[in-house]
Design a binder for these strands. Structure first.
Length: 515
DNA sequence: TCTTATT
């Protein structure tokens, strides 16, 4: 097979005396897949299906081994579809199913696929032969062929290794970690130029091996040229990564730090990457709307784009005045379009459900009236992200610190229930004190940031009377203690630029003014 | 100093 000339040759190379490419060392890379000792029944060959379109069942769905392994295939050029990939993988055995991952709404090729062979053995062969062994045309990294996450989640045995020296290779890291257990995967992180970023991932076959490596290696030595001693810890989970990215973005774009954000915002590069980041974060929402025909998908760059994205974000936020719990569950009939491209339908999208008093508040947010693209019950990270986008939109729309009252330019935005504007009006346990707010935050920004956690009945940033500047602290009141707790949980310590928010219950009045 | 993706 012409495509495989390179991997053919490497496949038949003798094993190196010294562990060179790590993937070659992994003699039994699939060791950890639980093996069910059931006799592998021979698949009965069936005639091939017609032309493959989305995913293929070449042998009929029932005809795979009980212990078959689903493989994740990564680094696939986006122009290759199932039918193009099939020949590459067929040489290792009959394919039970092969499906390229596509974005749910845009149909966009995600550059990866799932592959299940009829026979477990085929998967092992394919992984040994292909994983990291060949780079598909147009890709900068070699193809990935390994068990899908669904087969065996490895989060609890995967380590992040930091403070390596940039000259250290996979092999060096492998040797360092080898004494503590069987290493399944070992990757040094590299930038686009191929230079090491001074950190790595090491996946052991068990949690206890990983733990043992941490105990023995963390802080044990300082690599030449490294600024501090070796870091060995469990790698971030997906959720942690999401949060980290949001924080990085906040820092990078200086969203919460006007002295950085405002001067650079007008520069093309910052502006464009900011828009890009927003796009990424909001892509689903944008696409969901545009596909349903409410918004033409043309986003003319640059100014219209950022405004549209901002507008959509705005709509995507939970209008907490429509809270079923408080008996106001009907969505608004109209959404005034004061911005070009602003559309109504997203409004029905989110209906803020107040956290239940008994369960886990964050898990019960937004479980009602959800748009199809966020059907699962969101997690704390989702809620955090929600809060984050709520903050972002203001900087997108009002980059010049104008602090235009949101109700004036976007009249249908979430309104404060009961029209109370005084701070500390909620019942005890419902009022929050927030410190380390960004200087440019006003009442509305504050409210927006806390809306995802429940019904905000008031939000107040304290201003210095003399200078009319924010004192960087304020109060938010919810209509129930569960929301307040959820907000503390998610937002206390939330990093904004160089500062972390302090979010705690407001002291009761009598406690603050004892007499 | 936390990857390029995981239905």
């Amino acid at each position: 097979m012409a495509r495989f000339t390179q991997s053919e040759s490497r496949r038949h190379q003798p094993q190196p005396t010294h562990p060179a490419p790590v993937s070659l060392l992994l003699q039994q890379p699939l060791l950890l897949i639980p093996h069910q000792h059931q006799p592998a029944h021979q698949p009965v060959p069936k005639p091939m299906n017609g032309p493959e379109t989305v995913s293929m069942h070449t042998d009929g769905s029932a005809m795979k081994d009980q212990d078959a392994i689903k493989l994740f295939i990564g680094q696939i050029p986006r122009n290759l579809e199932e039918k193009d990939l099939k020949p590459l993988f067929e040489q290792f055995g009959k394919i039970h199913e092969l499906s390229v991952l596509k974005d749910r709404y845009t149909g966009m090729h995600k550059g990866c696929a799932f592959l299940t062979y009829c026979a477990r053995e085929s998967a092992i062969k394919a992984q040994n032969a292909l994983h990291e062994q060949k780079t598909l045309p147009g890709m900068t990294r070699p193809i990935q062929v390994k068990p899908a996450d669904s087969e065996c989640r490895g989060e609890d045995r995967k380590l992040f290794v930091g403070m390596l020296n940039k000259q250290q290779t996979e092999e060096d890291v492998y040797r360092l970690f080898e004494p503590y257990g069987a290493i399944e995967e070992c990757t040094v992180l590299r930038g686009p130029d191929g230079n090491s970023k001074g950190c790595a991932f090491v996946k052991y076959s068990t949690h206890s091996e990983a733990q043992s490596a941490i105990s023995s290696l963390h802080g044990s030595q300082t690599m030449p040229g490294a600024s501090s001693s070796l870091v060995v810890k469990f790698a971030d989970t997906d959720k942690e990564r999401t949060i980290r990215r949001m924080q990085q973005m906040a820092g990078q774009f200086g969203i919460f730090n006007p002295s950085v954000a405002l001067p650079t915002f007008s520069s093309y590069s910052t502006y464009s990457s900011y828009a890009h980041a927003l796009m990424q974060q909001q892509q689903q929402a944008v696409m969901a709307v545009s596909q349903s025909g409410y918004l033409a998908p043309s986003l003319s760059f640059p100014s219209a784009q950022i405004h549209q994205v901002g507008a959509l974000t705005m709509n995507g936020l939970p209008p907490n005045t429509l809270n079923p719990v408080s008996g106001l569950s009907s969505p608004p009939a109209t959404m005034p379009s004061s911005l070009p491209g602003l559309v109504t339908p997203m409004m029905n999208g989110y209906t803020g459900l107040a956290p239940q008093a008994n369960g886990h508040p964050l898990d019960t947010l937004y479980t009602n009236g959800l748009p199809p693209y966020s059907a699962q019950s969101p997690t704390a990270a989702d809620t955090l992200q929600q809060a984050f986008t709520g903050v972002q939109q203001y900087t997108a729309i009002y980059p010049a610190t104008t602090l235009t009252p949101i109700g004036q330019s976007l009249p249908q935005l979430p309104q404060v229930i009961g029209q109370q504007q005084r701070e500390g009006e909620g019942p005890e346990g419902c009022n929050l004190f927030i410190y380390h707010l960004p200087q440019e935050f006003g009442d509305n920004e504050l409210m927006q940031m806390f809306l995802p956690f429940g019904n905000v009945i008031s939000s107040k940033v304290f201003m210095d009377r003399a200078t009319n500047q924010s004192k960087c602290f304020g109060f938010v009141s919810f209509d129930n203690p569960g929301s307040a707790q959820a907000a503390i949980q998610a937002m206390n310590g939330f990093q904004i630029g160089m500062k972390r928010l302090k979010v705690q219950l407001k002291r009761p009045k009598d406690a603050s003014r004892p007499y």
